[in-house]
Every structure is written in C-alpha cells, then in structure tokens.
C-alpha cells in the first residue's frame, strides 16, 4: 500500500509505466500485492466453504451473501473516493443515518417523495461541504474533522428531529421501496444498487477529469497544486460524494429493513467500511486503488460472515475469526512487500 506497489486497482497503465514494480514478485508479470493477496485469500476461503459447507455454493445463498454486504459495499465506494484523495471519512455512518431518516420522516408527513429526497440530498451535500471545508480550508486532519462532524450530525439526529431514534419506512415511500426490497430477474435490488453505484463511481474515477484530479491530488497534493489542479475544491468534492453515497446506502438500508435505525452511529460499523476499502488494496496514503479493490474487500468480508453464519458461529467468534483473517492478510502483504525507511512516507499512519 506504500510506494512499493504501484499497481493498485487494476492500474495496468501504472504498472506499464513503472516497469517491474518494486516488491517481490513470485509470478512473472503478476505483482503479488495486497489486492492479489486478498483476492487469493478470498478465492481460498470461497473454495473451502463451497467444498465443505453444504448449501454455501448455491445461487440463492450467493445472492444472500451479496445482499448482506451490499450496503457495506456501497459505503465502501464512497469511502474509497475519500481515501484515494488521501483522506478518511468517519462521518459516513452519521450521513448514512440522518439524511435518509430525514427523507423517511418528511415523506411520512406527506411532503412528497421529490421534496423529501431533495431535502435529504441537500443535507448530505451540506455535510460533505462542511467536512470538505474544514479539511481543505481550515486544514484540520480529516480523521479528526470527520470524527467531530459525525458526532455533530448524530447530535442533530437526536435533537428531536425524529419522534423515535428508529424511523420507520413510511407507506408514502412505497413507490421507491424497491431499492431495498424485492429483486429483478432473481437478483435483489440492493445488490443491483451496489453494482450500479460501483459502475457510476468507477466511471467517475477512471474516465472523468474530476476523477483524475482526485487521484492526482491524493497521490501528491503539492504536485497537483503546482500543476494547477484546484486541490481544495477537489477535496470538498470528495466529501460531498462520500456524503451522497452514504445517503444512498442509507436509503437502500432503510428500504431493506423497513426502518432507519439512527442509533447505528453508535456502532463500530465505520471500521468495517474502512476495512473493506483498505483491505482491498486502497492505500491510506492516497492516489492508489479503485472500485475493484472495494469489491474484492467486500466479497472477502461477505464470504467470511456468510460462511460463519451458516456454521452458526457466534457473533463474537465471527468477529474474532474475521479479525484474525484480516490480520493475516495485512501481515502477508507486509512480508511480501516489505516497507522500508526509503519508501515509507513521513506522517503516513
């Protein structure tokens, strides 16, 4: 995830430019980087479960698996945009819960779907702007900014905006409840939502100028600034995208479970989101990786959780096993692609 590996996120062109990238390569032409490690790990676990667990490798279960992690995956996409821009957004859970709960609340009071959605979107954008402004202009580290903003947004959610902290999915929104419920050609809509979000984010990051700017400013903000990229507005854009993606995930989640539990902010979900992103090979130091990494990370987590639920492993044991697997993935990467003092970036945690 550091300078040694230049080819995160299917960046074939980066590999081509860098030639045989740094780090040990077992297989000729295949960089044995974290993305690869996680992919192999995923394949191994998937294969093991398929062979050993009756009922795992069925279409139905695989769709269930995808459905379980689709919201996590969508959140991961938003987080990926920020992480690629060398930031982190801990307020995503708050901006998942509150704007979508606002939509549900307004809709239940007969404000109409469009108005409700518009209000929710405005709130999500406002959160993104606030985050972006504080990071870009006040220059507070993103870790701290988004932490504090997240607390604040959760506070707004608790200030009597909603009657209860669990906001039910109102009948007025029945017209759009399909985004979390039901399925198309047997594929649940929530999975389709994840796929759609992945495609949109992927095209945005890879094919548009703004996406390229985000990579550039994440890779080396100073160079990007010198090159004339408006680094600060680009930073704000990242957080706005993250806010919007989070709200979308919130709508899918609340449609799916027929309610929005705003207490979700209290949970440690955000760590899962970061894991999905970073495990897939998107470096926290920015500028590396892409949508494919999020998908790989999501699939790994989803497979582990699904398999263990089938095996009726307890919640705590699931967490333990999940953690150990993740630790193993990180260790293998560190052994195969050792970082040294020359490649490590200062202040890169």
């Amino acid at each position: 995830m550091s300078g040694t590996e230049l080819n995160g996120g299917g960046q074939a062109e980066a590999v081509a430019k860098a030639g045989p990238a740094g780090g040990a390569s077992f297989l000729k032409g295949v960089a044995f980087d974290q993305q690869m490690i996680v992919l192999l790990l995923f394949a191994a676990i998937f294969l093991a479960f398929s062979l050993l667990l009756p009922g795992f490798f069925t279409v139905g279960n695989l769709l269930t698996l995808m459905r379980t992690v689709s919201v996590l995956g969508i959140l991961g996409l938003g987080m990926a945009v920020v992480v690629i821009g060398r930031g982190i957004d801990l307020s995503m859970i708050a901006s998942l819960a509150v704007p979508s709960a606002v939509v549900l609340m307004l809709a239940s009071k007969d404000y109409g779907i469009a108005t409700s959605l518009l209000c929710g979107v405005s709130l999500a954008v406002a959160i993104g702007v606030l985050n972006g402004f504080l990071v870009a202009y006040a220059e507070i580290p993103s870790l701290f900014t988004t932490l504090a903003v997240g607390i604040g947004i959760a506070g707004i959610g608790q200030s009597g905006l909603f009657e209860y902290e669990i906001v039910p999915w109102p009948a007025q929104l029945a017209a759009i409840s399909w985004i979390g419920q039901g399925s198309l050609l047997g594929i649940p809509y929530s999975v389709l939502a994840f796929i759609a979000a992945a495609i949109i984010v992927g095209i945005f990051m890879r094919k548009t100028r703004l996406g390229a700017f985000i990579y550039a400013s994440g890779d080396n903000p100073n160079a990007a600034r010198i090159a004339g990229i408006p680094v600060r507005p680009i930073l704000m854009l990242q957080y706005i995208i993250a806010g919007l993606v989070a709200m979308f995930a919130g709508l899918v989640l609340s449609a799916s479970s027929s309610s929005m539990d705003t207490r979700i902010f209290n949970l440690t979900w955000i760590y899962d989101v970061i894991l999905v992103v970073v495990l897939g090979g998107i470096g926290l130091s920015g500028g590396r990786g892409g949508v494919i990494n999020v998908i790989i990370g999501t699939l790994l987590i989803g497979t582990i959780v699904n398999g263990m639920t089938i095996m009726n492993v307890s919640f705590e044991m699931q967490n333990l096993i999940k953690g150990v697997v993740l630790l193993a993935a990180l260790s293998i990467d560190s052994i195969v692609n050792p970082r040294n003092e020359e490649t490590a970036q200062q202040g890169d945690i």
Binding site: S256, S257, D261, I264, L267, N306, T309, I310, F315
Partner: peptide, 22 residues
C-alpha cells in the same frame, strides 16, 4: 442462536436471510 449486536434490525435481517437460505 445469533446475537443481533446492540439490537440492530439490519443485523437481524441479514441473519434471518442467511438462515432462511439454509
């Protein structure tokens, strides 16, 4: 027998889904 964490409905949903699948 599964824990829903801190009484999370999303968790209850995904557990139920997986079990129904099996």
């Amino acid at each position: 027998v599964q824990s829903t964490g801190d009484y999370e409905s999303a968790k209850a949903k995904s557990i139920t889904q997986v079990v129904l699948q099996q």
